[in-house]
């Protein structure tokens, strides 16, 4: 299924992670007096899966949103594939087409059918012909297992189904990187796995992913690296096994003890 990637990695999923794709350098962001991102340095390589974890309010969502400029930053630089994020207008829209985003609350277009949701981006932002966009949308919906819901409106689907459609909608743009902001937090427990399975498959196929999640199973299975954030800073980075079994910082130990006990 390598057709969903713009460029193949050396060895899909577990190839050497040598090409920087998303690079954040000394990124700072304030909300009024609150310093939500403090000197963030982060490099995500092509084909890499990075899980971002941390307490509520630590700035994980803001970090994600800054990468496709849904949030502006005060200082520092963010580059995608070597190109700094454009400020506004058409260039920014083009960049966003290369960055897929999956939201906690799905945000499917409420007035459009599932199929139209997936087709809209390719048709309007990329000028793909409707027939072609439809064919590919059906393919993607099959892949995430909701092709039989194509004609329905989002409100008629379960949360898990909606989130899988949202993933298909993002994939339809053939993004270079996919951002997931707590994609399973709004889901009933029995639906979490159907979404995580789709994400795990994506990771295996070599998609570059930044995933904000507290799902440790997913992090262990699919992530190359865990980034732990607290109070606007990246406190610790490690491979998942090391991070979960042997965290170095006290803040990470403290956080893990809290999420492990409930």
């Amino acid at each position: 299924m390598a057709h969903d990637l713009d460029e193949p990695t050396a060895e899909p999923g577990r190839g050497p992670l040598t090409t920087p794709l998303v690079v954040l350098t000394k990124v700072n962001k304030h909300f009024g007096a609150l310093h939500v991102l403090q000197d963030i340095d982060l490099t995500v390589h092509r084909g890499e899966v990075v899980v971002v974890i941390g307490p509520s309010g630590s700035g994980k969502s803001t970090l994600c949103r800054a990468i496709n400029r849904l949030e502006t930053i005060d200082s520092g630089t963010i580059t995608l594939d070597g190109v700094p994020l454009p400020a506004e207008g058409k260039a920014l829209a083009r960049l966003r087409a290369d960055v897929g985003m999956v939201f906690q609350s799905f945000n499917l277009f409420a007035h459009k059918t599932v199929l139209e949701n997936v087709m809209l981006g390719p048709v309007k932002a990329k000028g793909v012909k409707r027939a072609e966009a439809k064919e590919r949308a059906v393919e993607l919906l099959e892949r995430v297992g909701v092709a039989n819901q194509a004609a329905k409106l989002p409100a008629q689907l379960s949360g898990g189904q909606q989130q899988r459609v949202a993933i298909a909608r993002a994939l339809a743009m053939k993004p270079k990187v996919m951002l997931f902001d707590e994609p399973t937090s709004a889901l009933d427990p029995e639906m979490i796995n159907e979404v995580l399975d789709v994400m795990t498959d994506l990771a295996r196929e070599g998609m570059t992913m930044v995933v904000v999640t507290h799902e440790m199973g997913f992090a262990r299975r699919a992530a190359h690296r865990v980034v732990f954030m607290d109070a606007g800073q990246i406190v610790e980075e490690a491979d998942p096994e090391t991070f979960f079994t042997n965290p170095r910082s006290d803040r990470a130990k403290d956080f893990l003890s809290k999420i492990l006990t409930h």
């Binding site: 496709n68 849904l70 207008g89 058409k90 829209a93 083009r94 960049l95 966003r96 087409a97 290369d98 960055v99 897929g100 985003m101 939201f103 609350s105 945000n107 499917l108 277009f109 409420a110 007035h111 809209l120 981006g121 309007k124 932002a125 990329k126 949202a166 909608r169 993002a170 339809a172 743009m173």
Partner: peptide, 22 residues
């Protein structure tokens, strides 16, 4: 909801398209 506009922008729609399509 703001989520609708954010999702539209996130798939690369311009401001005008976000307004007219979504």
């Amino acid at each position: 909801g703001v989520g609708q506009a954010e999702a539209a922008r996130a798939i690369g729609l311009t401001f005008g398209q976000t307004l007219s399509q979504v």
